[in-house]
Design a binder for these strands. Sequence first.
DNA 1: TTGTAGGCGTTATCAG
DNA 2: CTGATAACGCCTACAA
Lengths: 335, 335
Amino acid sequence: MAATIKDVAKESGVSVSTVSRWLTGGPVSTHKREKIQLAVQKLNFVSNGAARSLVTKKTYTLGVLLPDMYGGFYSEILRGLDQTAQERGYHLLVSSSHNEQREIVRAIQAMQGRVDGLVVMSPDIDAASLQSNLPARLPIVLLNCYVEGDAYDSINVDNYGGAYSIVRHLTRLGHRRIALITGSLVNHEVRERLRGYEDALRDAGIEVASSMRYVGDFNEPSGHRGALELLHTPERPTAIFAMNDGMAIGAMAALRTLGLRVPEEIAIVGFDDIPTSQYLEPPLTSVHVPIFEMGQRAMERLLMAIQEANAHIRRQEKFPTSLVIRRSCGVGQRS
Amino acid sequence: MAATIKDVAKESGVSVSTVSRWLTGGPVSTHKREKIQLAVQKLNFVSNGAARSLVTKKTYTLGVLLPDMYGGFYSEILRGLDQTAQERGYHLLVSSSHNEQREIVRAIQAMQGRVDGLVVMSPDIDAASLQSNLPARLPIVLLNCYVEGDAYDSINVDNYGGAYSIVRHLTRLGHRRIALITGSLVNHEVRERLRGYEDALRDAGIEVASSMRYVGDFNEPSGHRGALELLHTPERPTAIFAMNDGMAIGAMAALRTLGLRVPEEIAIVGFDDIPTSQYLEPPLTSVHVPIFEMGQRAMERLLMAIQEANAHIRRQEKFPTSLVIRRSCGVGQRS
DNA sequence: TTGTAGGCGTTATCAG
DNA sequence: CTGATAACGCCTACAA
């Protein structure tokens, strides 16, 4: 089938090692070089990556494990990862739809020998199980995963602080019945955001009411359902905090069908500040998370870990968030 | 470093080939199997993918070449590709930011030996050059690429028909000054959509005016600039057709800053119908393209081509579009 | 069922 | 500079 280095050697009348040297940029006499180039052209030769990395132990490929691929969040993360990888001459081996621990381990194992490192993004991962199942010495960066200690490089967002500040913003605007649409409660990020929400409420002297909470799943439809449900409560909320923008979008759509005006009749805020949010009407007030930059940073740290090999020092980074006030919460300037 | 099959063999006191047989699901006596399993556990062994595919000639990985990764369009395509690949036990090797022919060829070559097939998505690709640079017999599916003849499997959208129908919709609503925001004119899809636009105009007895055209680049900012520019013309358009939703979103933002109401004062429509479009306010009228499904289909056809090997029959598919009428064009029911 | 031997396509080492 | 030769980690006859 595809031509091998042997074919090229035969065709050009030189030894295999000379062809290899030419491929890897080593010294080759002008005469032979020309012959080789000719043969390469004629045979349409491209060297086999698998064979090459088998001996060099370098694949120039990085694995990426995602729980999902839908929505503005993951695509921005991926874009950040990809851009940085691309710049440094690396490719991305992507594998998504991993939620269960077992699947993740399986996927990682399948990547063994095909990647130089890994970015794992799985909010509810078990560090211990990960460690015992992981191939030796594969550089890894955990993105938005919860792990105690410093066994891994990791990058996270200040979920607590972000949630606290946006809810405090609402309380300061005078809201006292602030409903919440969460993601799955087993997710550690969700619990952190929940903590921020509750603390902000308490600090404002507001009681936390379980009737004011709907458990969603981070997707738009659940936001839609959540809004509908929450409006059925006797004490209708005056504001809704959705734990991500996707659910906030779903909630806004629900309010629209009910004929409720945002923000005049009910305020709504989100979390993440995905690119779409600024184009909604009204534009969505949200907790800005530097999504793209986190992807970039994760990749940088991974490449760093690969380069420094065992001299690498692990670090746990937490990205700060910032409040982006737009119109959906009722006081933003137009934007 | 990482344990090899040899280590497992030594540890468990059996031969390498027996371990290999156990790995590949061959027959192994209960006794030895247990020993092997124990050794595998102890050594934390995972077989090396590169070595395996070097001999089996299977990588269970598919390459994906994208021009870009930004926005709702590419992330949906990727999601479709990934979902189908995942279901069939394949991974995706992604490489984006390829626009120039040379880069594409380079990226393809870098994937040689690491993938079983390729999905190439590059609107302005040169088929001839591709063919002469391509490694032998690598199954390929071209997605939204323009190539004459039947040298490749390909999947496209009915760009002409989609543009024609949405512009006709506008003319039927009484619009006669319909401005256009295009993507790069070297792009074949753009030329097809342009053709649809012009034909629809002519069929309605409207003259095509070059002052009514702004050349953008498919990104939001260019849509913003385009709208601003087009409103400066002496004969202000009553409607704008942006060649994708991203630019339509940018244009809508521009109109908002100008204080122009959509659709009352000016209508605006897009192309692609990305997920975001339904959540805009007003919701965007657009040409629906089955983005996710096209990704799925491309992957299915690629897997088909791989399975059937040389018995495979190439096909060129063209996906139909449909008009999605929402409020931004001025007559949609609320949604 | 088991083990021995050979090879997949490249690179790396080391005498010429 | 050049060309044997030995890996790299795994699979697959083949013979036992």
